[in-house]
Nucleic acid binder design. Structure first.
Length: 707
DNA sequence: TCATTTAACGTTTTT
DNA sequence: CGTTAAATGA
């Protein structure tokens, strides 16, 4: 049996300890996916566990897909039952499956649609309108994320109402409540509901909980450090008497606390499952010694962390390089030239490189230059394929056919392509529809006869109803790809996007790709689910291209050469975390994750100045740079020819931390009038002006005059 | 009702 | 700076 071959002793121990709780503390690059895959293979091939009785949770769909492939090739040798695969997927995906099977017990219909971030925010907006709460004082986006937070902590509107102490919280609870009833009426679940409702379902019925507890003999969870309260609760419910639960994770790589993830879940695993078997994977197979050492030195500065020391037998390798650059354009140029020259001499291929950054906005400069220099690149994240307008429109049609109560989707497509159904007609329609208690398609059919709505709109609604009804019956027999084609043709959408602009072709192409994607799915619910749960990390890498992505998106990946750009205070660590020690530690972990993606070369850069918010800003070098230690770091070129800083006046080249102001100084600004300095933070001063408002200003730009 | 213009606004990270 | 949402006029 080759399943145990090629594993080191710690990995083998993790694979062969098949009963009872197991905690695998796996450092970066220690072969954790391999261990997990082999563990599953071993359970199936050597322990005789029925694959269907195994639940394996991964962080992304891509990870699940990869694991499935590796598992297939491992087990294939003696596994005749290829169709039988373990339950594999993300928490969200698993919950969808559970809810489709048993959701009806708590009133969740089988054909629910899944709302994404945009849908949720749009619905919040509608809820606020209904409650006549102005979106000037309270931002829908703020409410939307607050609702998400509440759901991740399993809090209901009533829970919030109970502890509401400020007007905002009361409003929040009210809007949340209305949002929930509107969402239910639409037959929809949002992202967080998938977890929340699955937990609620299992908690509501002891028999149901027992059914699934008995079903899953083995549970494995990857990236356990990034589980949130709802996911944790789900795990606790599903683990049965024999406690065959195996979690893998690394608290040093926990970077999703802003999404409700709680890495103390992994630190407390031993407490939750007493007597658990702990395996530490500390041998790193990915990076060279210098990279590992520098990354280690950065993470050491955190207080909230477990103790471990990764090691490698790979040798020191080249030192980590640090480049101080003039501005973000020069930074992009440095990266581009490094890549081009290495590819030109045949030392590397384009897909050996990854450029990592903290915020998506930073990709812009890189993209522009890469396009100019004809460097092929692939952007992970950013504007997702499924976020494009034309794609979302078609998806909305599909959703409406699938779930004819989905108002959100109907609102989106009612007048797309334009058919003369305006805001007033829509309002009348919704009023009438909810009074009659009909689903949207039926209501459309009947409103034409009711004489509520006049002229053109009335006629349009009638013909739209006919089209939708026909598509709906089609959906019972036809594959998703055919339905999409029918939508594009029958609704006049194809003609609608062909508006003569240069983007018309691109849109048509996108629709073609959508049909292609859909070919892979046999049923509408599978396709809609896949679309809804698709993540940016799930974009398949294709061909010889440099990869551009955020540090977050890089989790779990590796590249021979990694650039991390924007190593500046305010970017990494991000300025929004400065007053929170816990969040600062997360930034440090994020930096650690980025650094440990590199196999052979790691290049870091920071700039003297950078355009942010359309303003030039001057950020000090990131504190993480000085934490890396001197032995492993070599300082690279600090500028490139042509745009060298020495061409510039001295006073723009260097700045001191002393802005020449003190707290309490009276100053005059040409923009805001007179005021008093109330706070100083490096080059930024906060001024309270006589008008009453406070402003944070950069002393280099504001031209404040001392009085 | 729709298209064009104008204003505001936002940038952390995403299943 | 660049994008999207509201406002305005036709």
């Amino acid at each position: 049996m080759n399943i145990l071959e090629g594993l080191n002793p710690a990995q083998a121990e993790a694979v062969t300890t098949t009963t009872g709780p197991v905690l695998i503390l796996a450092g970066a690059g220690s072969g954790k996916t391999k261990t997990l895959t082999h563990r599953i293979a071993n359970l199936i091939a050597n322990e005789g566990v029925w694959p269907n009785r195994i639940l394996a949770v991964t962080f992304t769909n891509k990870a699940a897909r990869e694991m499935r492939h590796r598992l297939a090739s491992l087990v294939e040798a003696d596994a005749s039952h290829r169709d039988f695969m373990p339950w594999m997927g993300t928490f969200h995906g698993i919950c969808v499956r559970l809810l489709r099977i048993d959701g009806h017990t708590i009133g969740v219909g089988r054909n629910f649609v899944i709302y994404d971030e945009d849908d949720r925010q749009a619905l919040v907006k509608q809820a606020m309108k209904q409650l006549s709460i102005s979106d000037r004082d309270i931002k829908p986006s703020q409410i939307s994320s607050a609702i998400s937070n509440a759901k991740n902590k399993l809090q209901t509107p009533d829970d919030l109402k109970g502890e509401a102490r400020y007007p905002f919280q009361q409003h929040l609870a009210t809007i949340y409540d209305r949002y929930e009833s509107m969402r239910r009426d639409a037959g929809a679940l949002d992202f967080d509901d998938l977890l929340l409702e699955a937990v609620r379902m299992l908690q509501s019925s002891p028999e149901l909980a027992k059914k699934w507890r008995d079903h899953f003999e083995h549970i494995l969870i990857d990236e356990y450090q990034d589980t949130n309260a709802a996911q944790y609760q789900l795990v606790k419910i599903l683990v049965n008497q024999s406690k065959n639960i195996c979690v893998v994770g690394d608290d040093w790589q926990s970077i999703y606390s802003w999404r409700g993830a709680d890495f103390t879940n992994i630190l407390n695993f031993e407490r939750d499952f007493p007597g658990c078997h702990v395996v530490k994977l500390e041998q790193n197979y990915r990076s060279t010694g210098n990279i590992l050492e520098a990354a280690h030195n950065v993470i050491q500065k955190n207080d909230q962390r477990s103790d471990k020391k990764l090691w490698t037998s790979a040798g020191d390798g080249s030192p980590v390089t640090v480049h101080g650059i003039y501005d973000e354009n020069e930074e992009a140029r440095l990266v581009a030239e490094r890549i081009s020259s290495q590819v030109a001499i045949g030392a590397r291929k384009y897909d050996d490189f990854a450029v990592l950054y903290r915020t998506n906005a930073q990709s812009y400069t890189l993209e522009r230059l890469f396009l100019q220099l004809h460097i092929p690149y692939q952007l992970v994240g950013g504007v997702r394929f499924y976020d494009r307008k034309e794609i979302k429109d078609i998806i909305a049609y599909l959703r409406l056919i699938y779930q004819p109560n989905d108002r959100m989707s109907f609102s989106r497509i009612a007048n797309v392509p334009t058919r003369g159904i305006g805001a007033t007609s829509m309002e009348k329609f919704f009023d009438w529809q909810s009074n009659q208690g009909l689903d949207i398609i039926t209501a459309l059919e009947q409103i034409a006869m009711a004489g509520i709505i006049s002229g053109k709109a009335r006629q349009s609604m009638g013909s739209l109803a006919a089209i939708l009804r026909r598509l709906q019956s089609m959906a019972e027999t036809e594959a998703p790809a055919n339905i999409i084609e029918a939508i594009i043709n029958d609704t006049g959408y194809r003609h609608y996007i062909d508006d003569g602009t240069p983007q018309a072709d691109e849109r048509a192409e996108n629709l073609g790709s959508l049909i292609n994607e859909a070919q892979a799915y046999a049923s509408l619910d599978d396709f809609l689910e896949e679309v809804a749960l698709m993540s940016s990390a799930d974009t398949t890498s294709d061909g010889q291209k440099v990869t551009l992505m955020t540090l977050h998106a890089a989790k779990g990946l590796e590249f021979p050469v990694v650039f991390i750009v924007g190593m500046e205070e305010g970017i990494i660590p991000h300025s929004r975390v400065f007053d929170s020690p816990a969040e600062l530690e997360e930034e440090r972990r994020l930096c650690y994750v980025g650094m440990t993606r590199a196999r052979e070369e790691l290049h870091l850069s920071y700039t003297h100045s950078r355009m942010q918010f359309g303003q030039r800003s001057y950020n000090p070098t990131s504190r993480f740079i000085s934490d890396m230690g001197e032995g492993v770091v070599s300082t690279g070129p600090t500028h490139l020819g042509g745009f060298a800083p020495q061409n510039l006046p001295d006073d723009e080249l260097f700045y001191s931390d002393e802005p020449g102001f003190d707290i309490g100084d009276q100053v005059r600004s040409s923009m805001f009038g007179d005021g008093e300095i109330v706070d100083i933070d490096g080059l930024a001063v906060t001024v309270r002006f006589s008008s009453g408002q406070s402003k944070k200003l950069n002393t280099q730009f504001a031209h404040l005059q001392k009085l």
